[in-house]
Every structure is written in structure tokens, then in C-alpha cells.
Design a protein around this nucleic acid. Structure first.
Lengths: 283, 283
DNA sequence: AGCAATTCAGAAAATTCATTCCAAATTTAT
DNA sequence: ATAAATTTGGAATGAATTTTCTGAATTGCT
């Protein structure tokens, strides 16, 4: 009886795309736990494809039975039937991926896909380099300096602006207030006076190094402020006026650079500083 | 415990590559049925990864128990253990990755270096996932829409702000002027009226989705504006009010996410749009 | 050809798994 | 505030799956 009705009305999704679509539409009317399943499934399709109900359930923080109910809500008989869709996606994607990779490698055509592929490849390379070449001593000194600072000031223009802007946000989220120095005409220099000796200045600047930024850092450094700089070469003019220099070689495609690697380092710094501050400044 | 035993007994392949190597070396001295397994496994790795012993056995023309013996011949405890290697290959998670991550995790302490290591590994994985999961159709449609737009408006707050901010910069460098919508209190909504039908709105928003952003996009979409959104899930409220949705699963470490992958995609979009515009709008 | 060692198929056992069920808890409607 | 309906956790169940075991078949050796 029920089976007949089920078979008629909600025909089951037959591929991953329609499954996603259905989850998306049904998610509105889903109770808490089922929504939790929905979120987990969309965020970890691979684990759904390969895991057992027990494993997945514990990873998603629900009961195995909830997973089954989730699958049934979507129109499947049970979990296993839903799992097959995820498995199909996994296999198809795998073959597509290798195909895509070879296409990227051989054809120089500038399709959006190949541009992306190129950036991905180079970014991975660049991340590897970062981990291999990073100066851990400098990194640790940076964290220390930032953790110990009374106030943290952040400066970065143009390409470096998103980096400091994200640091500002992330550190803020961790309860570390920072002063993001936005560029508002020639007034920048005047603000050096508001930075005092116990503060730290974090500066990011890349290849056509903004003179204003270097100038600003120089003045702060001259005043005895701890200057931590993030740049792309030790030859950067900022290096001369920094207490600590962090170097990043960003991935590039033609004349354009991604910010993947830089962001990775920046985020790590933020988390490390947040961690360090948590222990020292715990009220 | 188990690790010690594993390490002592004929060390088991931890990688699909080394597994293949072992199969091919041992296959010389394999009896008929085991050879049959070997051949089938190498020819149908996906089915080994996903099937049950019964299914695979019948497909390969052997008994389930033979499959188990086959796995044991290669040094595994049983079939299931071998299957994991095939699964890892399918997901694209090779042993180096997991090895490094466990090494990082084992070191336990949150030293700056280990935090960075963690972010680097996860970002690399996340980049791989991006290339695997990216919806090329959506990507191409996004590029088209952005290239064809009279004006491009960019919107993103909090964690998404660095992304649009970088897009603003990069597109500007390529001669594509964009309108970066900064948040200045409640005035945001009023600005919808300055966006017209031939424009495109690029919106980025992530997990605690800013209602203002969604609201803004919704209004623009309602006015017939082409809305391209960059978000982290199809469950994102922005998906409903977008012409095209680009999904990114960013790497995370604890509660904190890097922006590496997102930045990689954003940069690719910028370059692709810049390319496309170059040909159409060459004066 | 005859014997020993190895390999095999198939059944049996042990384990794990997906699913169902029900009482408790929570939400919704009245 | 109370009752009804829905949702949830967790145990129970029955099915399925991996693995072991054993006698038969095959192979290799003399």
C-alpha cells in the first residue's frame, strides 16, 4: 500500500545532481536532525559513498537510524539505495577528473576550466613550496610578537589588502581585536604616531611594492615597533624595515597570481595567534 | 598495538600504486584463481572499491573466499583491508596525504608549524576537490554572464569580503571596472535600484549567511539582474536567488577555514572574464 | 604412475550491517 | 495549558557480508 503510493508520487532521484536538488528543496521542511544529515551529506559526499551507517552517523553526530530516515525522506527505500547515487557520482567524477587533467595538460586553450585547472595545479605546487621553504623560526617569532603585542595593526594595499582584511576578520572572530589601516589618501603616514612601542605592525606587500606601505613600515620600525612583514622575496624593500619577514611564493598563471598560498599562511598565523592569546589572556 | 603487528608482518601496501606493484610482482607465482583475481582487480579497481565480495566474486568468476585469499596473499588481513586501498584511490586520497596529516595530528601540539602544515595539507586536498567537483557548466555560464554584463557589481561581507575585494582588484588590473559594494550600514538595500537588468551581480557568502547579502541578491534577482553566487553549499539561501551557483568546499582546521580554495576559484574567474572581455571589448 | 603439497569450492561460522520498532522527548496546534 | 502530532534516540531484529574451515580436486615432483 504505502509502497505503491511511494512509488507513484516521489520518484527517486537517479543521479547526484537531482539528489542535490531534492535535498535543497526538501531542506526547508526538514526537522533538525534530518537537516544535519543533509548538511553532512552535501559537505562529505565521499564519506556517504564509502562509509557504513554507523561510521557516517557518528561522524555526522546523529543515529544510524536517522540516516535511514533521511534517505527515506528523500524518496529512497533506505540508506543503501541512496548510497548508490553517491557511489555513482564518485566513479563518474573520478573518470571525469583524469580526463579533465589530461585535457588541461595538453591543451593550452583558455577555457574557464583549463584556467582553473592551471591555477589549482600551481596553487598546490605553491602550497608544497610554502611548507618546505617556510622559515619556522620566523614564523614562530611572528606569532610570539603578535601574541605579545598590546595592539595589532594591519596594513596592506592592492593585492595585499584582501590578506590583511581577512586577518582582521579572522582574528576578530577569535577575540583578538586588530586595527586595519585602510588607505584613505595621503593621511596614512600621519597615523604612525598612533602606533606605540608595545604594538605590532603586520604588513603585507607584494611585487610592485607600494611605496606608501614601505614608508609607513619604515617609520614604525624606526620608532621601535615590532614589524612583521609578509612578502614575496627577501629582496623586498620591506625586509629592511622588518623585525621578522615571512616569505611566500604565490602561484601564478601568466601575469596573474592567485592568493591561495598567501591566504593559507595568513589563516595559519591568525589561528596560531588566536590560540596563543587564548591561554595568556583568558580572563 | 595493531600498528606494531602490521609493521612486523609482511608490510601491507598503503597506496594504490604500491598495491599495483605488489600485485604485478606476485602475480608470477600465483595459481590460476588468484591470477584471475589479480587481473580482475587491476582491470576493475572501481568495482573492487565499491562492491561486496559476493558481487565481485561472481563478476570475476571466482568464489568469495578466493577474493579473501587473494587479499591475504598480498599481505592484508582480509578483503576489507585491501578494499580500503581501492577506495582511497577512488576518492583521490593518496597515502602521502593521510600520512602527513596523521603525522601532524600525532605531533598533537598546536605549534605554528603544525597548524600551517595542517592548513597546507587540507588546502591541497580542498583544491583537488574543487577541480573534481566544479560544475564546469555553471563556471562557463558565470564567465559568460560576467563578460556580457554592462556593469559588474560585487558583494560579499565578513569572510567573503576579501574574496570580492580581490576580484575587484584583479578585474580592475585587467581593465574590467567593477563596483564593489561596501557595507555601510542599512543603506545597502537602497542601492539595488542602481543595478539594472543588463548588469551582473557577483555575490559571495558563506555559512552563517549574512541576511543582508541574501536580501540584496534576492531583490536584484527579482529585478531580472543576472546573479552569480559563490557559496559553500546548495543549501545556501543564496542559491534560490541566483542565476548561477558556484560551490566551493573550503579546507578547515577546527572551526577555522582558510580561503585558499575560494581564492583560487575567484582568481580563475577573474582571469577568464578578463580574457573574454579582452576580445569583445578591444577598442 | 603414485605421492605430497598446494589450491580450490563450497558450506558454515562469526561478525557487521541496514533497517525497523517503540518509548521518550520535542514540537505544533488548539 | 493541554492535547495531538511529529521527531528522535537507542535497542532489537533479521539480513547480508566477510572470513574461516574442511574435504575434494588439482598440480608438481620423483
Amino acid at each position: 500500500m504505502t509502497q505503491n503510493l511511494d512509488a507513484i508520487s516521489p520518484d527517486i532521484p537517479s543521479d547526484y545532481e537531482s539528489l542535490k536538488a531534492r535535498i535543497s528543496t526538501l531542506s526547508d521542511s526538514m526537522p533538525k536532525r534530518l537537516l544535519q544529515c543533509a548538511r553532512y551529506a552535501l559537505a562529505n559526499p565521499d564519506r556517504i559513498a564509502l562509509g557504513t551507517t554507523a561510521e557516517i552517523a557518528s561522524a555526522a553526530g546523529v543515529q544510524p537510524s536517522t540516516l535511514v530516515r533521511f534517505a527515506q525522506t528523500l524518496g529512497f527505500d533506505g540508506f543503501s539505495q541512496m548510497q548508490q547515487i553517491f557511489q555513482g557520482q564518485l566513479v563518474g567524477r573520478n573518470s571525469e577528473y583524469t580526463e579533465r587533467l589530461t585535457k588541461i595538460r595538453e591543451s593550452g586553450t583558455n577555457t574557464p576550466g583549463s584556467i582553473l585547472g592551471n591555477f589549482v595545479e600551481r596553487s598546490k605546487q605553491s602550497l608544497d613550496d610554502l611548507l618546505r621553504q617556510v622559515d619556522t623560526v620566523a614564523l614562530e617569532r611572528s606569532i610570539e610578537a603578535l601574541s605579545a603585542a598590546e595592539n595589532i595593526h594591519l596594513l596592506g594595499l592592492r593585492r595585499a589588502y584582501p590578506v590583511v582584511s581577512y586577518l582582521h576578520y579572522t582574528l576578530g572572530k577569535m577575540g583578538v581585536r586588530t586595527n586595519l589601516l585602510e588607505y584613505t589618501g595621503g593621511i596614512l603616514e600621519e597615523r604612525v604616531q598612533f602606533i606605540n612601542e608595545n604594538d605590532a605592525l603586520f604588513v603585507a606587500t607584494f611585487s610592485p611594492y607600494s611605496p606608501e606601505v614601505v614608508e609607513f613600515a619604515s617609520k614604525a620600525f624606526g620608532r621601535g615597533v615590532s614589524v612583521i612583514s609578509l612578502t614575496d622575496s627577501v629582496l623586498s624593500p620591506i625586509a629592511r624595515v622588518s623585525s621578522t619577514v615571512l616569505e611566500v611564493n604565490e602561484a601564478e598563471h601568466g601575469a596573474f597570481r592567485s592568493l591561495s598560498t598567501t591566504m593559507c599562511l595568513a589563516t595559519s598565523i591568525a589561528v596560531a595567534v588566536g590560540d596563543a592569546r587564548k591561554w595568556t589572556s583568558l580572563s
